[in-house]
Design a protein around this nucleic acid. Structure first.
Lengths: 196, 196, 196, 196
DNA sequence: CGATAAACGAGACGGTACGTCACGTCTTGCC
DNA sequence: GGCAAGACGTGACGTACCGTCTCGTTTATCG
């Protein structure tokens, strides 16, 4: 009855608890310091999880950062459907550009896309939890518009998705200063004109 | 005791010679091992230039890699003007996608775009020596088509540039496997339809 | 679904079987890789015994190595008594030096003596299963010689034991290259001269 | 006048200063915690020297400990020559046994001899800075006695050295409790009787 | 034209991070 | 209940780079 209340920290713990701990710390570091700030060392230091365990669960620090990011911000992006395609797309695109340019999530996401160029695990996570879901949402909205007759029947909606969001991403990655309200307007108008 | 066979390499040397040496080594490393392979240490080891000097001339290893890349492949991309906009754009886009997907320059360029997300020097170099020149070339071709009446007068050609190349870049960075011949066809067609 | 082909190894097993298994694996590792090669992890990996069980039975990996060594090579050392003390001692000493210098048991034993300097369990095992038994055998031989009048009556035979084997051990531990045939001859002669 | 007196610590420093710093810290750790307490990590943490530098200068933590020990206690052991060999040897042996059994240097030295069994750099240092110098001193004393006619002419003094110190080392390493005053007396007497 | 200052090479130094290994602790699921 | 399997925190190892700093050498420049 000597009361060994003090949890030493060693020994096995529930995997979920450990993973959540690590992801929380990683998400915090990611938003505060960018992808480069998420290292195995720092995540271990700012959580209860040991480096050894981090290595066991994630193939790279960037992969950990990616999972942390996508776990923390899963739902985020919905596209309201008011019936007015142009307005809906423009609103969503504006919110997205705002996120990228004015919230800490922007640099984080840019950093993850960057990391994906040399880290297959990050690329896979990016595709699975980010790129493809958003592509589906945008595509679905355009398809609904197509069924309403607002878009031409033969148009490949995925191409239109790229011409709106892909173009925007490209500017955000290479010339972020040029992503203005006017540019976003033109982007949506031009894309819809081609699809009408 | 006249022969000074052993060129020690020490002492002052013409700056240009030194810079060229460093850039050559950096370019080689970049193409062979990617951006991450270009470190001050390795460039110094595989050239006659010392780390001290590298630090003096370039703010980061990635910046050195960028300059090496753009110096080595300055002219590269021209856009032939046959009068047939669609064909010209399609040809250029195809050559570009090929470069990105099937030559060592592809990973290098992807890596540089990635590095630019966390390295302002790289971003600046990328904009100055790569993004803007190519944007100008593409824009000029579209303007010529516009003057020939092949494109509507009010269209912002830079938006069209983004809808072709920007969209393509986005796929190359996030879902490279989906960049197929058919996709490129659709991209050009769709963009031109919107600009007609 | 009768066949229980897969012997899972789990569940309770006879303690002796488990211990023998562990000791066998430890002995193998000890002879092949030295004391440092005997770790709980490696013994568990190269036997059917789990780490949990190893920790339960042995206070340290070196202690396990020690027990493995002494269990495997208990009888080993006999000292033939032909009546000629000098020849008998010299023969035994030669065999011992040979063992230490030219068999895998040599490094193992040197390693155990080393481990004993910072591991009381190893020291205790070493004394009980190695040092004292051999000291008894050598002492008994010398006492027989003493009773035959070949050694002076007042001589402390344990001191003579040290002056032969102890001296030899010291050289084997600190200057193994200097343990030559001539040295062993001189050692025995000198010790017996002092004891005559 | 912001006074940037604060030495950043980075950059090159005189090699001797660095080495001395490291050796000081290592010596302290060695005496306080034994050989196992001297790790690259701890030496770096308790000195101004970085781990990288320690790895550059010493092949193993034990080798660093060895150099620290021998640098700190170079002269130590002299053997006074009063003309009475027996008394001189006995006095020196007593002082040595005392050092080994009752000072922090004892465990340190035992640990270094142990480390030498699996670390050639330690073995070499031990031989060069400890074993051979002391063997020379003891041998020289015995040779002087030999020239004075106190020892027989044909006796190999190095064998006598082993029979005194070697025997003592062996007991100190394997049965330290048995190294008593009486034992040391017997050791010297017995060895000298054999050499008379 | 010779002395001087600038630029260079070599490379050590304090750090941070990586990826691995072993230790000792602890939990879960078989048998 | 005892065992295997195996995850966990800890701490050490050895390596790669980074950015800083020192030293000695060589060369361009200027007195």
């Amino acid at each position: 009855m000597t009361a060994q209340l003090a949890r030493s920290g060693r020994g096995r713990r529930p995997a979920d608890e450990v993973r959540r701990d690590a992801l929380d710390a990683a998400a915090r570091l990611l938003l505060e310091q960018g992808v480069a700030g998420v290292t195995y060392d720092r995540v271990a230091a700012s959580s209860t999880v040991s480096r050894t365990t981090l290595y066991k669960w994630w193939p790279s620090a960037a992969a950990l950062a990616a999972e942390a990011f996508f776990t923390a911000s899963e739902p985020e992006l919905e596209l309201v459907d008011t019936g007015d395609v142009r307005a809906d797309l423009r609103a969503q695109l504006g919110a997205f550009a705002d996120l990228m340019l004015r919230s800490p999530a922007g640099p984080a996401l840019r950093g993850l896309i960057a990391a994906a160029q040399s880290d297959d695990a990050v690329l896979a996570a990016l595709q699975e939890h980010y790129v493809r879901p958003r592509r589906r949402i945008g595509g679905a909205a355009l398809e609904r518009a197509q069924q309403r007759g607002q878009l031409a029947a033969g148009v490949d909606v995925q191409v239109v998705v790229d011409q709106i969001w892909g173009a925007c991403y490209y500017r955000l990655l290479t010339e972020p200063d040029t992503v203005t309200t006017g540019y976003l307007d033109a982007l949506v108008s031009q894309a819809l004109r081609g699809a009408r």
